[in-house]
Simulated assay, not measured.
Amino acid sequence: MTIFARRARASAGRMHPELSLVSYTLLGHLEERGGCRATDLAAHYALDKSTVSRQVAALERAGLIERRLDPEDHRVQVLHLTEAGQEILAQVTRSRRAAFRERLAGWPEEDLVRFAAYLERYNAGQGDPDSA
Rank of each mutant, 00 (worst) to 15 (best):
E32P: 05
E32H: 12
E32G: 06
E32T: 14
R33C: 08
R33A: 13
R33N: 06
G34K: 09
G34V: 12
G34Y: 08
G34M: 04
G34L: 03
G34A: 05
G35W: 03
C36K: 00
C36I: 06
R37G: 08
R37F: 02
R37C: 09
R37S: 15
R37A: 15
A38H: 06
T39C: 01
D40A: 11
D40Q: 05
L41Y: 02
L41Q: 04
L41R: 04
L41C: 05
A42P: 00
A42L: 03
A43M: 06
A43C: 08
H44E: 10
H44S: 07
H44A: 15
Y45N: 04
A46M: 06
A46F: 10
A46N: 10
L47F: 13
L47S: 04
D48R: 13
D48Y: 09
D48E: 14
K49L: 13
K49I: 14
K49E: 10
S50N: 15
T51V: 14
T51P: 02
T51N: 12
T51E: 09
V52P: 00
V52S: 01
V52L: 06
V52A: 03
S53G: 15
S53L: 13
S53C: 12
S53I: 07
R54N: 06
R54T: 14
V56H: 01
V56F: 00
A57N: 10
A57R: 14
A58I: 12
A58S: 08
A58V: 12
A58C: 02
A58Q: 13
L59M: 13
L59V: 12
L59G: 02
L59Y: 00
E60G: 02
E60K: 13
E60Y: 00
E60I: 14
R61S: 09
R61M: 07
R61V: 11
R61L: 09
R61H: 10
R61P: 01
R61N: 03
A62P: 01
G63H: 05
G63E: 11
G63D: 07
G63V: 06
L64Q: 03
I65C: 03
I65G: 05
I65E: 00
I65K: 01
E66D: 08
E66R: 10
R67I: 08
